[in-house]
Amino acid sequence: MQAFVKTLTGKTITLEVEPSDTIENVKAKIQDKEGIPPDQQRLIFAGKQLEDGRTLSDYNIQKESTLHLVLR
């Protein structure tokens, strides 16, 4: 499924993900596309910070959801 990641600069990245993907996995995909190390990434969805060990389905993130990427 497709999900979108919006950065603070307003850029939107499109990712191909599965509901079973972990947040860690998603961060690795963002690193592949953008070169941002996962340890600098914080992903926010519905106002919550997403934890590495959880999956997209844990957070009820469905296709075409938009996550927000904040860098630390």
Rank of each mutant, 00 (worst) to 15 (best):
G10V: 02
V70D: 06
Q31L: 10
V5P: 01
N60A: 08
E51S: 08
M1A: 03
I44N: 05
P38A: 15
I13V: 06
N60M: 08
T12F: 10
H68K: 07
K48H: 12
F4E: 04
R54Y: 13
N25W: 10
T22V: 04
L71F: 08
Q2G: 05
V26C: 03
S57V: 06
E18L: 15
R54I: 05
L67K: 01
I36V: 08
I13K: 01
L67Y: 03
T14S: 10
R72Y: 11
I23T: 05
A28L: 15
G47C: 07
T12L: 13
I61L: 07
T7F: 15
V70H: 10
T7D: 06
P38N: 07
S20H: 11
T22A: 04
P38R: 13
I61E: 02
G47M: 04
S20E: 11
P37Q: 06
E34L: 15
L8Y: 14
K6C: 11
T55I: 07
K27V: 02
A28E: 10
K6Y: 09
L56K: 00
P38M: 15
G53A: 10
F45H: 07
K48L: 13
A3Y: 10
L71A: 08
I36A: 03
V5D: 01
Q2K: 14
I30K: 00
Q62D: 10
T22H: 04
P38D: 04
E64H: 12
E34C: 13
V5T: 01
A3M: 15
P38V: 15
I23Y: 01
V26F: 04
T66A: 06
S57P: 02
I61S: 03
F45D: 01
K6W: 07
I30T: 01
R72V: 14
K11Q: 09
Q41H: 04
Q40T: 09
P19Y: 08
V17N: 01
K63I: 07
K11R: 12
D58T: 05
A3F: 14
H68A: 06
G10Q: 04
P37M: 07
P38W: 11
Q2R: 15
V70G: 05
L71T: 10
T12E: 05
E18Y: 15
L56F: 04
N60R: 07
I30F: 02
V5C: 04
R72E: 13
T7E: 03
R42P: 01
Q2Y: 14
F45L: 06
T9V: 07
G53I: 07
G53P: 06
P19K: 07
K29E: 02
A3I: 15
Q49S: 11
T12G: 03
T12M: 12
T55G: 02
K29D: 02
K48C: 09
K63P: 15
F4A: 04
T66G: 04
Q2E: 07
Q62L: 11
D21K: 01
T22Y: 08
G47N: 07
L71I: 12
Q62S: 12
Y59L: 05
P19R: 07
V5F: 05
Q62Y: 11
I36E: 02
T12Q: 07
I23K: 00
K29M: 13
A28N: 11
D39R: 11
D58H: 11
L8C: 14
E64K: 08
F45T: 02
D52K: 04
E34P: 01
L15I: 14
T55L: 08
S20Y: 11
S57E: 12
I30Q: 00
Y59V: 03
H68R: 08
V17S: 01
I30E: 00
V70M: 11
L50P: 01
K48S: 08
T22P: 05
R72I: 14
A46E: 14
P38G: 08
T55W: 03
L67V: 07
I30R: 01
D32R: 13
E51N: 07
I61P: 03
L15C: 02
L69Y: 01
E34Q: 07
G35S: 05
G47L: 04
I30M: 03
T22E: 03
N60F: 08
T14N: 07
A3S: 04
D32A: 14
A46Y: 09
G53C: 07
E34G: 06
S57Q: 13
T7Q: 06
L69K: 00
K6I: 14
D32V: 13
E18N: 13
L56G: 00
Q40N: 10
A46K: 15
D52L: 05
L43H: 00
D58L: 03
K29C: 03
I13S: 02
D39Y: 13
K29S: 04
Q49H: 12
R54V: 06
I23R: 00
I61C: 03
A46S: 09
A28V: 12
L69I: 07
K27M: 06
I44E: 09
E16T: 13
L43T: 00
Q62A: 10
L43S: 00
L43M: 03
K48Y: 10
M1C: 04
I36F: 12
L8G: 12
D32E: 14
A28D: 07
Q62P: 12
I61K: 03
V5I: 13
L8D: 12
D21C: 05
V17I: 07
D21W: 10
K11F: 09
K48G: 06
Q40L: 12
E16C: 14
D32M: 14
V17C: 06
Q41P: 01
L50F: 02
G47I: 02
E18H: 15
V70K: 08
E24M: 13
G35C: 05
I36D: 02
D21L: 05
G35A: 05
E24G: 12
G35D: 05
D21M: 12
S20L: 09
K11P: 04
V17Q: 00
L67G: 01
D32K: 13
N25E: 12
I44A: 05
I36N: 03
K63R: 12
T14H: 08
L15Y: 02
A28M: 14
L56T: 02
L43D: 00
L67E: 01
E16K: 09
P19W: 09
K33M: 12
T7N: 05
A28Y: 13
S57F: 10
G35E: 03
K29W: 04
G47R: 04
R72W: 12
G10T: 03
L67R: 01
E24Y: 15
V17Y: 04
I23F: 02
I13C: 02
G35V: 02
L56M: 05
P37D: 08
V70W: 10
K33W: 07
P38I: 15
I44D: 04
A3L: 15
K11T: 08
H68F: 14
G53T: 10
F45A: 03
D21H: 05
I23M: 03
I61H: 03
T12Y: 09
T14P: 06
L15N: 00
H68C: 12
V70E: 12
F4R: 07
E51D: 09
K6S: 08
L56C: 02
L67Q: 02
I36H: 09
S20G: 12
Q31D: 05
D39K: 11
T22I: 04
Q31C: 11
V5M: 02
P38H: 10
M1K: 04
E16S: 13
N60K: 10
R42V: 15
Q41I: 12
Q40P: 02
G10A: 03
L56P: 00
E24F: 15
E24D: 07
E64D: 15
E34K: 05
K11A: 08
E18G: 08
T22Q: 04
P37C: 07
K48E: 12
T9N: 13
K29V: 04
L43P: 00
K27L: 04
Q62R: 11
Q40V: 11
G35T: 03
L71W: 09
T55V: 07
I44K: 05
L69C: 02
K33V: 12
K48F: 11
D52C: 05
I30Y: 02
